[in-house]
Amino acid sequence: MNIRYVRDTFANLWLDPGKVREVDRPSLHCPMDRETWLAMGTENRLDLVGRLESQVLYGAPVQVMEEREGWVRVCVPGQFTPKDSGGYPGWIPASQLTFDREYHQAWETSPFAWVTADRSRLLLDSGEEVELSFMTRLPQVGERDGDVIVRTPGGETGRIPAEEVTVARQLPVTGVEARIRTAERFLGLPYLWAGMSSFGFDCSGFMYRIFEANGIAIPRDADPQARYGQRVSKEELAPGDLLFFAHEEGKGAIHHVGMYIGDGSFIHSPNTPNPVKINRLTDEPYHSELCWGARYQGGESFT
């Protein structure tokens, strides 16, 4: 199996290299010019639909399927999708991926330092800094002076403030209240199509990370999230359940997901003009498009 690891804050997963626009060029380098790329206007953000598929965080593995002209076609283990049994498929610039044998071995066996702060900074031994997203995980190799020491995909070690990470091979399943508190920390964060980082989430990416942070694995996209959880009717909704919204007044294709937080309200990452927010189920178009909910409690199988 040909595995590589992401060596930037995050790597974009593109549908097709031929669909990358000029405005996306700052995101193709390593390190990417993240601030310039994220500063694109609303029209360009809307135009990411049909171009960008998902994102992969710093240090995470991808399985290489093909290489072509500076690009690598990969599958992303852990981002479950019916599109490919190996994980979410797409293209990443080759420069944003690397392989170090010691890192690979540590990834397979060591406890992880999970970034549970909204964001953090990794200080490499070389003096370079890497900004880290919420839910970045790196193999932990020690502790020193209030920092967690981690191994990095480039073969170095580095330091992350201990108060900004949780060290565990797998994060424990927490209660519903913790899940809701985690989600509420991101109120106001801008929406980003295909976003999987705390620099911008799409609707299903937001839910994926919130559940992951609380020890529960769910599929990557809204439609499989709706199909693989325990189905819950509108009348049976409980806090912590996912809510799904569909075209044709709730009878068509699912296009949106949020999380019920009780008292007729839900939290979600709505769309490009609107950041993470809380809405009422009586608000339109959500009232007419709500189709059902899904409950995940940990341990679900997606095969």
Results as ranks from 00 to 15, higher is better:
residue 4 R to M: 14
residue 7 R to W: 03
residue 9 T to I: 08
residue 10 F to Y: 15
residue 13 L to T: 03
residue 16 D to E: 14
residue 16 D to N: 14
residue 18 G to P: 07
residue 18 G to I: 08
residue 19 K to N: 07
residue 22 E to A: 14
residue 24 D to K: 06
residue 25 R to I: 09
residue 33 D to C: 03
residue 36 T to N: 02
residue 38 L to I: 06
residue 42 T to M: 13
residue 44 N to L: 14
residue 46 L to I: 09
residue 47 D to R: 09
residue 47 D to H: 10
residue 49 V to P: 03
residue 50 G to C: 05
residue 51 R to T: 06
residue 52 L to M: 10
residue 54 S to A: 13
residue 55 Q to G: 07
residue 55 Q to P: 01
residue 62 V to T: 12
residue 68 R to T: 11
residue 68 R to P: 00
residue 70 G to E: 04
residue 72 V to L: 06
residue 79 Q to Y: 09
residue 79 Q to K: 13
residue 80 F to S: 04
residue 86 G to E: 10
residue 88 Y to H: 06
residue 88 Y to N: 04
residue 92 I to W: 00
residue 95 S to R: 14
residue 95 S to L: 12
residue 95 S to F: 02
residue 96 Q to I: 07
residue 98 T to G: 06
residue 99 F to H: 11
residue 101 R to S: 08
residue 106 A to T: 03
residue 108 E to F: 00
residue 108 E to D: 10
residue 112 F to Q: 02
residue 112 F to R: 06
residue 114 W to G: 02
residue 115 V to K: 01
residue 116 T to R: 14
residue 116 T to Y: 00
residue 117 A to D: 04
residue 120 S to Y: 04
residue 122 L to I: 05
residue 123 L to S: 15
residue 123 L to T: 15
residue 124 L to I: 04
residue 125 D to M: 11
residue 126 S to M: 11
residue 127 G to D: 09
residue 131 E to K: 12
residue 133 S to V: 08
residue 133 S to I: 05
residue 134 F to A: 05
residue 134 F to Y: 12
residue 136 T to M: 02
residue 136 T to H: 00
residue 141 V to Y: 00
residue 145 D to K: 08
residue 148 V to E: 01
residue 153 P to L: 05
residue 156 E to W: 07
residue 158 G to W: 01
residue 159 R to A: 14
residue 162 A to R: 13
residue 166 T to I: 04
residue 166 T to E: 14
residue 167 V to S: 03
residue 169 R to A: 13
residue 177 E to N: 12
residue 177 E to T: 12
residue 179 R to S: 01
residue 181 R to L: 11
residue 188 G to D: 11
residue 188 G to Y: 13
residue 192 L to N: 05
residue 197 S to C: 13
residue 200 G to Q: 10
residue 204 S to P: 00
residue 204 S to H: 02
residue 208 Y to M: 07
residue 213 A to W: 02
residue 214 N to W: 04
residue 216 I to N: 04
residue 218 I to Q: 03
residue 218 I to Y: 10
residue 218 I to A: 03
residue 219 P to E: 05
residue 223 D to C: 01
residue 224 P to Y: 11
residue 228 Y to S: 09
residue 235 E to K: 13
residue 240 G to V: 00
residue 240 G to L: 02
residue 241 D to Q: 09
residue 242 L to R: 02
residue 242 L to N: 04
residue 244 F to S: 04
residue 247 H to M: 10
residue 257 V to G: 00
residue 261 I to E: 01
residue 263 D to I: 03
residue 268 H to E: 15
residue 271 N to G: 06
residue 273 P to T: 14
residue 273 P to E: 10
residue 274 N to G: 10
residue 275 P to R: 10
residue 275 P to L: 07
residue 278 I to Y: 15
residue 279 N to Q: 11
residue 279 N to A: 13
residue 282 T to R: 11
residue 283 D to I: 12
residue 285 P to D: 06
residue 288 S to I: 15
residue 290 L to V: 08
residue 292 W to C: 15
residue 296 Y to L: 07
residue 297 Q to K: 12
residue 301 S to M: 08
residue 303 T to S: 13
